[in-house]
Amino acid sequence: MSVQEPVDLRCTINGVARELRAAPLRRLLDVLRDDLGLTGTKEGCGEGECGACTVLVNGEPVNSCLVPVCQVDACSVTTIEGSGFEGVQAAFLEHGGAQCGICTPGMIVMTRAWLEERSRLGAAVDLESARKALAGNLCRCTGYAKILTSALAAAAVKP
């Protein structure tokens, strides 16, 4: 089987069971954007540096530009188009967490993952842990201050 040869995959994308046919090493990012039209996931660098393409795979944040699509077989993928982001989105709108908006979907996905992780650990939602959690999501507009404010505010509205 060549690396070019398409394979059949089953996965759940934003809660919907999907059957995909794709070359196994295609980037999850490209399959989401080009095949499924889920263009909310952005590409900033193509090498796992900027975090603009962050999605959740089985609830874990990953850079979708570094995930070959064959590795999400039997997995659940959540993108910014999925549900469960409303509280974080509202916080980013209210507190000026989005400027140009290109890093915003990845930033929001990562913020949700951080909140869920803190909740799972029963750990405090504090500035320090927000900084660490969002360190792989680059933003050139905001200086991060209002993003961190938004993330902390989202903690207050999220159950």
Binding site: L38, T39, G40, T41, K42, T79, I80, E81, F85, Q89, F92, L93, A98, G101, T104, P105, I108
Partner: peptide, 9 residues
């Protein structure tokens, strides 16, 4: 344009 940006639309 905020809602479109935070939802990825």
């Amino acid at each position: 344009e905020g809602p479109a940006k935070v939802t990825g639309r």
